[in-house]
Amino acid sequence: MTKVVDRSPLNFYERTYLPALMEGFKITARHFARSVQGKNTATDLGDGYYPEVPWRVAEGYRGAPYLVSDQDGATKCVSCQLCEFICPPKAIKITPPGPEGQGADRPNAEKMPREFEINMLRCIFCGLCQEVCPEEAIFLQQHYSLTGLNREEMIYNKEKLLKLGGVHPGIQKWKHKLEEARDQESFPVKVD
Protein backbone atom coordinates (compact mmCIF):
# COMPACT_ATOMS: atom_id res chain seq x y z
CA MET A 1 0.00 0.00 0.00
CA THR A 2 1.32 3.37 -0.89
CA LYS A 3 1.31 5.88 1.86
CA VAL A 4 1.19 9.44 0.64
CA VAL A 5 3.08 11.78 2.92
CA ASP A 6 1.63 15.25 2.98
CA ARG A 7 4.37 17.69 2.12
CA SER A 8 2.53 20.95 1.87
CA PRO A 9 4.73 23.86 0.79
CA LEU A 10 6.04 26.08 3.55
CA ASN A 11 4.13 29.25 4.18
CA PHE A 12 5.81 32.63 4.27
CA TYR A 13 6.38 32.64 7.99
CA GLU A 14 7.99 29.23 7.84
CA ARG A 15 10.15 30.28 4.95
CA THR A 16 11.73 33.03 7.04
CA TYR A 17 13.35 30.24 9.07
CA LEU A 18 12.06 31.91 12.23
CA PRO A 19 9.92 29.02 13.53
CA ALA A 20 12.81 26.64 12.93
CA LEU A 21 15.13 28.94 14.80
CA MET A 22 12.71 29.23 17.70
CA GLU A 23 12.23 25.52 17.89
CA GLY A 24 15.96 24.88 17.74
CA PHE A 25 16.59 27.40 20.44
CA LYS A 26 13.90 25.95 22.65
CA ILE A 27 15.28 22.44 22.44
CA THR A 28 18.89 23.39 22.92
CA ALA A 29 18.02 25.76 25.76
CA ARG A 30 16.07 23.06 27.52
CA HIS A 31 18.96 20.63 27.38
CA PHE A 32 21.44 23.33 28.28
CA ALA A 33 19.44 24.32 31.32
CA ARG A 34 19.20 20.72 32.44
CA SER A 35 22.89 20.10 31.96
CA VAL A 36 23.86 23.26 33.79
CA GLN A 37 21.93 21.97 36.76
CA GLY A 38 24.18 18.93 36.59
CA LYS A 39 21.63 16.50 35.26
CA ASN A 40 22.30 14.13 32.37
CA THR A 41 21.91 10.49 31.44
CA ALA A 42 24.76 9.41 33.67
CA THR A 43 23.25 11.13 36.71
CA ASP A 44 19.80 9.81 35.80
CA LEU A 45 21.14 6.28 35.99
CA GLY A 46 22.75 7.31 39.25
CA ASP A 47 26.13 5.72 38.67
CA GLY A 48 28.75 8.10 37.55
CA TYR A 49 30.81 8.76 34.49
CA TYR A 50 32.25 6.39 31.97
CA PRO A 51 35.80 5.35 32.73
CA GLU A 52 35.09 4.89 36.43
CA VAL A 53 31.64 3.47 35.96
CA PRO A 54 31.32 1.42 32.78
CA TRP A 55 28.33 2.12 30.67
CA ARG A 56 25.47 -0.28 31.30
CA VAL A 57 24.56 -1.85 27.99
CA ALA A 58 21.04 -2.80 27.05
CA GLU A 59 19.98 -6.39 26.78
CA GLY A 60 20.77 -7.81 23.38
CA TYR A 61 23.68 -5.43 22.95
CA ARG A 62 26.15 -6.73 20.41
CA GLY A 63 29.62 -6.41 21.86
CA ALA A 64 32.68 -8.51 21.28
CA PRO A 65 32.19 -12.15 20.20
CA TYR A 66 33.62 -14.69 22.61
CA LEU A 67 33.69 -18.48 22.67
CA VAL A 68 31.65 -20.14 25.38
CA SER A 69 32.01 -23.39 27.30
CA ASP A 70 29.22 -25.77 28.20
CA GLN A 71 28.16 -26.47 31.77
CA ASP A 72 30.86 -29.13 32.09
CA GLY A 73 33.52 -26.60 31.16
CA ALA A 74 34.17 -28.13 27.75
CA THR A 75 34.81 -26.14 24.60
CA LYS A 76 31.60 -25.97 22.62
CA CYS A 77 33.27 -25.04 19.36
CA VAL A 78 33.86 -28.02 17.06
CA SER A 79 35.91 -26.11 14.49
CA CYS A 80 33.31 -26.27 11.73
CA GLN A 81 34.66 -22.93 10.47
CA LEU A 82 31.31 -21.57 9.39
CA CYS A 83 31.97 -18.37 11.36
CA GLU A 84 35.31 -18.00 9.63
CA PHE A 85 33.51 -18.38 6.34
CA ILE A 86 30.72 -15.93 7.08
CA CYS A 87 32.82 -13.29 8.85
CA PRO A 88 32.57 -10.19 6.61
CA PRO A 89 35.84 -8.52 7.70
CA LYS A 90 37.68 -11.86 7.94
CA ALA A 91 38.43 -11.29 11.59
CA ILE A 92 38.14 -14.95 12.57
CA LYS A 93 40.93 -17.39 11.90
CA ILE A 94 40.53 -21.00 12.93
CA THR A 95 43.24 -23.62 12.84
CA PRO A 96 41.54 -27.01 12.56
CA PRO A 97 42.97 -29.87 14.60
CA GLY A 98 44.15 -31.81 11.56
CA PRO A 99 44.57 -35.58 11.45
CA GLU A 100 46.99 -35.77 14.38
CA GLY A 101 45.48 -32.95 16.38
CA GLN A 102 43.98 -33.08 19.80
CA GLY A 103 40.41 -34.34 19.89
CA ALA A 104 37.60 -32.50 21.57
CA ASP A 105 37.77 -32.02 25.33
CA ARG A 106 34.44 -33.81 25.74
CA PRO A 107 33.41 -37.24 24.50
CA ASN A 108 31.70 -37.81 21.17
CA ALA A 109 32.29 -34.36 19.68
CA GLU A 110 35.47 -35.66 18.02
CA LYS A 111 36.78 -32.26 17.13
CA MET A 112 37.66 -28.84 18.47
CA PRO A 113 39.83 -26.05 17.09
CA ARG A 114 43.54 -26.22 17.67
CA GLU A 115 43.56 -22.45 17.63
CA PHE A 116 40.77 -19.93 17.34
CA GLU A 117 41.69 -16.32 16.82
CA ILE A 118 39.53 -13.25 16.52
CA ASN A 119 41.21 -10.07 15.47
CA MET A 120 39.23 -7.55 17.48
CA LEU A 121 40.66 -4.73 15.39
CA ARG A 122 38.93 -6.22 12.41
CA CYS A 123 35.75 -7.40 14.09
CA ILE A 124 32.75 -5.22 13.33
CA PHE A 125 30.45 -6.82 15.94
CA CYS A 126 27.93 -7.74 13.26
CA GLY A 127 26.89 -10.97 14.98
CA LEU A 128 26.93 -13.16 11.87
CA CYS A 129 29.25 -15.63 13.63
CA GLN A 130 26.76 -16.05 16.43
CA GLU A 131 23.93 -16.43 13.98
CA VAL A 132 25.69 -19.00 11.82
CA CYS A 133 27.12 -21.11 14.64
CA PRO A 134 25.42 -24.52 14.62
CA GLU A 135 26.87 -25.41 18.02
CA GLU A 136 25.91 -22.26 19.96
CA ALA A 137 29.57 -21.86 20.74
CA ILE A 138 30.16 -18.20 19.99
CA PHE A 139 28.15 -15.28 21.32
CA LEU A 140 28.37 -11.56 21.05
CA GLN A 141 28.71 -10.51 24.63
CA GLN A 142 28.49 -7.20 26.38
CA HIS A 143 32.11 -6.08 26.24
CA TYR A 144 32.49 -2.96 24.17
CA SER A 145 35.68 -1.39 25.43
CA LEU A 146 38.48 -3.49 24.00
CA THR A 147 41.93 -2.06 24.37
CA GLY A 148 45.45 -3.22 23.78
CA LEU A 149 48.89 -1.72 23.59
CA ASN A 150 49.71 -3.23 20.20
CA ARG A 151 48.07 -5.06 17.34
CA GLU A 152 49.10 -8.51 18.52
CA GLU A 153 47.38 -7.92 21.81
CA MET A 154 44.12 -7.31 19.97
CA ILE A 155 44.17 -10.76 18.40
CA TYR A 156 42.36 -12.85 20.99
CA ASN A 157 43.28 -16.53 21.01
CA LYS A 158 41.17 -19.50 21.97
CA GLU A 159 42.23 -19.52 25.59
CA LYS A 160 41.43 -15.85 26.06
CA LEU A 161 38.14 -16.06 24.18
CA LEU A 162 37.00 -19.02 26.24
CA LYS A 163 37.96 -17.33 29.47
CA LEU A 164 36.13 -14.15 28.55
CA GLY A 165 33.17 -16.03 27.15
CA GLY A 166 32.28 -17.99 30.25
CA VAL A 167 29.71 -20.75 30.45
CA HIS A 168 26.65 -20.91 28.27
CA PRO A 169 24.32 -23.67 29.39
CA GLY A 170 22.14 -25.32 26.81
CA ILE A 171 21.37 -28.65 25.24
CA GLN A 172 24.50 -30.76 25.29
CA LYS A 173 23.94 -32.32 21.90
CA TRP A 174 26.96 -34.59 21.80
CA LYS A 175 26.54 -35.79 25.35
CA HIS A 176 22.89 -36.49 24.65
CA LYS A 177 23.77 -38.53 21.58
CA LEU A 178 26.31 -40.50 23.54
CA GLU A 179 23.80 -41.31 26.27
CA GLU A 180 21.29 -42.35 23.65
CA ALA A 181 23.83 -44.65 22.05
CA ARG A 182 24.71 -46.19 25.42
CA ASP A 183 21.05 -46.88 26.09
CA GLN A 184 20.85 -48.82 22.86
CA GLU A 185 23.66 -51.12 23.79
CA SER A 186 21.23 -53.09 25.96
CA PHE A 187 18.37 -54.89 24.25
CA PRO A 188 15.51 -54.16 23.83
CA VAL A 189 16.09 -50.62 22.67
CA LYS A 190 14.71 -48.23 25.22
CA VAL A 191 12.13 -45.91 23.73
CA ASP A 192 11.12 -42.90 25.77
Binding site: T28, H31, F32, R34, S35, V36, N40, T41, A42, Y49
Partner: peptide, 10 residues
Protein backbone atom coordinates in the same frame (compact mmCIF):
# COMPACT_ATOMS: atom_id res chain seq x y z
CA UNK B 1 31.53 22.92 27.19
CA UNK B 2 28.43 24.56 25.70
CA UNK B 3 28.02 21.86 23.10
CA UNK B 4 28.39 19.26 25.83
CA UNK B 5 25.70 20.91 27.88
CA UNK B 6 23.35 21.16 24.93
CA UNK B 7 23.94 17.53 24.08
CA UNK B 8 23.57 16.21 27.63
CA UNK B 9 27.24 15.55 28.00
CA UNK B 10 29.89 16.75 30.38
Amino acid sequence: KVSAAIQDRV
